[in-house]
């Protein structure tokens, strides 16, 4: 089976006053219908990688790649129109904070229906039915009531679920989730992940899960890419993470305080300049 997404030598750079800043420096990976985690600290280029695939990089940024194809479509050569059609329809993205990604003056329901009707030719009443069904699928109780609420009237966890519902309504084949649960409480976080997990499994989507939390990602994804300073330093199957070879991955894993392990002081990461080469 050919991969859903192929990324080869992706580079994203931003011109600034002091010169060109390279956020992503030659990232290569491919994705099938699986859960892939991209992990790194702030400034590692993990989010920019996701955004570049989605086509959400700010216009002044420069993106180059040897290959950047989604299901055979060259994303770099695609017209803005083509990309718009892909976005939301076949590729979708969930952002960290639902507060900023939901339109505050539109009801939840209308936003979902609108997303659906931009991509599918269906009637208003059917769209509403499907939106409510989708809200139920992300385990929002009383979906019909939530349908008519505005984003400020619901909690953060519910907002993130509504966001997921909106992104999944058009049944995309690829979902990019950028820190989808970081703004949520731990217990809610797991609920949201369980929903995401179920939907990915049921619909056979490809998922890119971008996060700073190595432990969470490794418990959720099949495969993990670890990024540092715009490059991939290690690619490893999630269950093998304990045997990670790269000192950065090892350092990331061991520097987190854990319940029951009594390490004082905590081991700190000794950043080697050669990692960034």
């Amino acid at each position: 089976m050919s991969p859903l997404l192929t990324v080869e030598d992706l580079r994203v750079s931003f011109p600034t006053r002091t010169g060109l800043v390279e956020a992503v420096r030659g990232v290569t990976f491919s994705l099938g219908r699986e859960r892939l985690g991209i992990v790194g600290e702030s400034g590692s280029g993990k989010s920019q990688t996701g955004r570049a695939i989605m086509g959400l990089t700010p216009p002044h940024a420069r993106i180059t790649a040897k290959t950047l194809t989604f299901d055979g479509i060259d994303l770099l050569k695609a017209s803005p129109r083509q990309r718009r059609e892909l976005r939301g329809n076949r590729v979708a993205m969930i952002l960290q904070d639902p507060k900023y990604s939901l339109n505050p003056v539109m009801t939840i329901g209308r936003q979902i229906v609108e997303t659906l009707r931009t991509h599918r030719k269906i009637g208003a009443s059917e769209a509403k039915e499907r939106a409510i069904a989708m809200l139920e699928a992300v385990q929002i109780r009383d979906a019909a009531r939530v349908f008519d609420l505005h984003p400020h009237e619901i909690s953060g966890g519910m907002g993130q679920r509504a966001m997921i519902a909106m992104m999944l309504i058009a049944e995309p084949e690829l979902l990019i989730a950028d820190e989808p649960t970081s703004a949520l409480d731990v217990t809610v976080q797991l609920d949201v992940l369980a929903i995401l997990d179920k939907l990915v499994a049921e619909r056979g989507m490809g998922l890119i899960f971008v996060s700073h939390d190595l432990r969470l990602v490794s418990s959720f994804c099949d495969r993990v890419i670890v990024m540092y300073a715009g490059r991939i330093v290690e690619e490893i199957a999630a269950q093998d993470l304990r045997n990670a070879r790269h000192p950065y991955t090892q350092g990331l894993l061991s520097c987190m305080p854990e319940i029951g392990s009594d390490r004082h002081p905590l081991p700190v990461l000794d950043r080697k300049p050669e990692w960034a080469l």
Binding site: E41, H212, L214, L252, C255, P257, P267, L269
Partner: peptide
């Protein structure tokens, strides 16, 4: 903070 900075 990032995990490694948190440790520091």
């Amino acid at each position: 903070l990032d995990a490694s900075v948190q440790a520091e």
